[in-house]
Design a binder for these strands. Structure first.
Ligand SMILES: [Mn+2]
Ligand SMILES: [Mn+2]
Ligand SMILES: [Zn+2]
Ligand SMILES: [Zn+2]
Lengths: 142, 142
DNA sequence: TTTTATTTTGTAATAATTACAAATATGGCA
DNA sequence: TGCCATATTTGTAATTATTACAAAATAAAA
């Protein structure tokens, strides 16, 4: 078991189980923004008994602890992202793929950092920019 | 029946039915971003037989025709918005209310209009900024 | 090794949305 | 105005994602 992943699990005061380890390892460096079902399906190959429920439970614990994030850009299901630094997302309406987009460049989205904590009297916790359209790959298939 | 609403239905080549009229009338000027269930529940008072399916069908036809928009900021369900001009949304994680936010002010979100059609080779159709946190009302109850 | 609390599993329940077909209503036309 | 073809509504059933639950298994502390 990779020690960095084991460490990450211990950091959030959870028991280190093969299932949790496998889920975190699968997500590490994964840029596809997989759904819970994607993750479960892939893990079944190496771990034929891992249950859907465990995948869901683990993912929500990881989200709660801030180790991964949920991305709500796909209208049909939650997608999960190991990247927790500020960035945004592009969703292809045809193939459903989700791509990362840098915070500013190359899209020139500028959020004034001075004002990001207050908005019409509301307390702002998160800002997500969701961009939808037709991805590069799907575009070239036309 | 209000003639402006009737006109809007005809514009999208649909038959004018009392159900469609009631749905559009309910949405007109509504700033609460109701869900399909909210809409159905309210309409039942005046129209005791209107079905869930009709509400869903009508809403998706209106979305398809660009007369209203779907807002995906609520992780549990679709919310509907009669405003189709560019603006963004704040979602209260406690009470679930959704508020409109102006495109630039007062939040100082600046999207460079020159670059909004291309992004890493992807074709951009929509940009939505979703802001989440604790709303004014919920904040004052703490 | 023993013990206990946590975790996993399998299954069932819930919630939102979509599919379908029979009954009904709309709008064009005689 | 009345008839008719087609679109729409309804009620119900199916689907999909997610959550709830309790018994069996396991991790980690003693
Ligand atoms: Mn991402
Ligand atoms: Mn709005
Ligand atoms: Zn695509
Ligand atoms: Zn609130």
């Amino acid at each position: 078991m990779a020690p960095n992943i084991t460490k990450k699990i211990k950091e959030i005061a959870l028991r280190v189980t093969p299932q949790r380890h496998a889920i975190l390892k699968f997500l590490e460096g994964n840029v596809t923004h997989p759904s819970a079902e994607n993750i479960h399906h892939k893990l079944l190959k190496k771990m034929p008994n891992i249950s859907f429920t465990t995948v869901y439970n683990t993912l929500s614990k990881l989200v709660e602890a801030g180790k991964i994030q949920e991305v709500y850009i796909d209208p049909n299901k939650k997608r999960f992202d190991p990247r927790i630094d500020p960035h945004h997302h592009f969703y292809c309406k045809v193939c459903g793929k989700v791509f990362d987009v840098g915070y500013d460049a190359p899209f020139s989205v500028i959020i004034n950092p001075l004002n990001t904590k207050k908005l019409d009297g509301h307390q702002v916790d998160e800002i997500q920019i969701y961009i939808k359209g037709l991805c590069k790959d799907c575009r070239s298939k036309r």
